[in-house]
Design a binder for these strands. Sequence first.
DNA 1: CTGAAAGCGCTTACAG
DNA 2: CTGAAAGCGCTTACAG
Lengths: 342, 342
Amino acid sequence: MAAFVNPTMVDVAKRAGVSIASVSRTFSNPQSVREQTRNKVLAAAQELHFSLSRAAGNLKTGISQRIALLVVNEQIEWFTASVIAGIAHVLRDVDYDLAIYPMDSRSRRADFFEQLPVRNNVDAVIVSSFALSDDEIEKLHSVHVPLVGINVPVTDGFDYAVHASDAKGMNMIVKYLAMLGHRHVLYVFPDLDPLRVDDPPERLRTFLESCNALSYMQASVKVVDPQRPTFEAIANALVNDSSITAVCVHQDSLAIPLLFDMQANGIDVPAQLSVVGYDDSTYAQQIGLTTVHQDPYALGERAARQTLRLIQQEHIGATVEQLPVELIVRQTTGAPRTVSLF
Amino acid sequence: MAAFVNPTMVDVAKRAGVSIASVSRTFSNPQSVREQTRNKVLAAAQELHFSLSRAAGNLKTGISQRIALLVVNEQIEWFTASVIAGIAHVLRDVDYDLAIYPMDSRSRRADFFEQLPVRNNVDAVIVSSFALSDDEIEKLHSVHVPLVGINVPVTDGFDYAVHASDAKGMNMIVKYLAMLGHRHVLYVFPDLDPLRVDDPPERLRTFLESCNALSYMQASVKVVDPQRPTFEAIANALVNDSSITAVCVHQDSLAIPLLFDMQANGIDVPAQLSVVGYDDSTYAQQIGLTTVHQDPYALGERAARQTLRLIQQEHIGATVEQLPVELIVRQTTGAPRTVSLF
DNA sequence: CTGAAAGCGCTTACAG
DNA sequence: CTGAAAGCGCTTACAG
């Protein structure tokens, strides 16, 4: 490992008896070189275990083959992990790297925008699921590279943005519950990461709007500490107002333990109470949770594809897109109860 | 965006009235330049929004600041996502990139080892949670870069490897169940990803060994399709042999839906049946699952740190390490039942 | 402590 | 179709 030196194009050129220009061309633009030459080069390259140096190419072309992803959470959870997998999948095929920059504390975030380590070293930046301040957007613009957003609450200043529409999903939930006959739904809302400056959150907002749009539909909200059992937190809301017949939980990761606790406490879901989640995440299917399906992997893929187009200066069509969202009715929802809950 | 050109060291040097060597030094080795000079450089750099080009540096130094991670699954699941987050965390601090190469199909995997896109373009390679063939290891050696493993079943040919010991975890489970008084445990084993050439899997193997070591402990195994409900699959094993009083599930992701189904089917866990999982993954805590805790994030961090040392040619101490594993006793385990299950 | 200069390994006009 | 040559933006021995 000590004195090992990788072969370069000059080694290949020598062995193949051609110029380095021909070597370069057979890799970057094969049809521009005669087949015979190409074969000589390929053979020599194979024999020497030659491999292009991306650093040299990057330097010459000014293309870094790197895209930055700004995310808010460090211990990456379900949604972000899928987004990353989707992006990484499309980038790998074109030999691009994804450089992940976690903004998991105020100081890290401040440092990032202070240093802007991305300047000069990235072909685009993608922001996932949090809001940028105007100042931050301006700084990102100063790196002169396409800026794309995934589930960003406001899209001004972005060259492209994709969303899974919370508005549509919530609207479907509310309409579906109304159709089943529910007239009073409790929204369970976890205290959010303070760094996620999405305020008021789209889901909650559109839940309230959707209920409002239906004159007969009453909405209540219960804010809950995600670290503590949700069941206990909402139990008294439920006893205090017996007109609540359905619970709409902000996200599956809260709904699933809740369901479990309800079952353990002998509450019959959905006979006594309907429960709907949001995300269609791990276990939702196995457990039979009615929820809204979205596809963060697809979001990542789409964002990555469009980013690549932007880098290529290609036309990308619409500058803001929504990916479909789907209500998945399973076993936790039904008609409102006819007898009392407790 | 069109004609924008980033400033280079020569711009900074001019503005600061020094040579580019001094500019370079103030960034790479600040104490080698006089404070006054350094300040001039820093000021000029700031004014021009200068940022080092990593491509140029990489080319000159031969250090790519890139580490490859080989993983087997594309739709990245809980464990791998945490490993990645752990690695990415330590790499970000030293401005290294993580290039993820998914080996999610035979052809992708074959292509990777055929092309070896990593040659000449990576400072190390890390392999997570699958077995390499001898041939593959040999090819990776030919890239002349440190090779490190995370939870790899065999560590020959690796410069370093970290594990969360399945053997220890399983041993704790079996001893704990024995202590509670169980004498016959059913191991629930999912059909594994055929690409994960870990055969026979450590967990199952050490479960059987641990039971064997206790002369009075009987072990049974039920192979299960992870796509279908586990409860139905094991129900008849349970009725057919009433001496089974505990179920040891290969991983939490199987155990959690199983528990849910048991509860729904009126089985009282642990009064009628003890259930233990493995992983301490999402929801295990909220749901009260007895399981073995391991820390893939820590595994990733440790692997990354050691990889960096290897790259630096530093001494790394032991070449194979195990990270602690912990039995977390919660509410799904107890004494064997005294009345029949069904 | 500082500068002039070579060179890392490519790509790509340009000329033939 | 092919080659000679310039140059991308740094780092670093070398000399002073």
